[in-house]
Amino acid sequence: MNVTNEDLDRLWETLRMIGWGAIALVMLTPALAMQFTEEVNWTGEDFVFAGVLLIGGAGLIELVAWRVRNPVIRIGFALCVVAVVALIWVEAAVGIFH
Rank of each mutant, 00 (worst) to 15 (best):
N2T: 15
N2Q: 14
E6F: 15
E6R: 15
D7F: 08
L8A: 07
L8G: 10
D9Y: 14
L11P: 05
E13L: 14
E13F: 12
L15P: 02
M17P: 08
G19W: 08
G19Q: 10
G21M: 03
A22C: 04
M27G: 01
T29W: 13
A31N: 02
Q35S: 12
Q35V: 06
F36C: 01
E39H: 11
N41G: 05
T43D: 13
T43H: 07
E45L: 15
E45I: 14
D46I: 03
D46Y: 09
F47K: 05
V48A: 04
V48P: 05
A50S: 10
G51H: 14
V52N: 02
V52H: 02
V52W: 04
L54A: 00
I55D: 04
G56M: 01
G57D: 04
A58N: 13
A58K: 09
A58C: 11
L60V: 03
L60W: 01
L63N: 08
V64W: 06
A65T: 04
A65Q: 13
A65P: 01
A65S: 13
W66V: 05
V68Q: 05
V68T: 14
I73T: 05
R74M: 00
R74P: 02
I75Y: 00
I75A: 00
F77W: 02
A78W: 07
A83V: 08
V84A: 00
V85K: 09
V85Y: 00
A86K: 15
A86W: 11
V90C: 06
E91W: 00
A93C: 01
V94M: 07
G95P: 01
I96M: 07
F97Q: 14
H98N: 10
H98G: 11
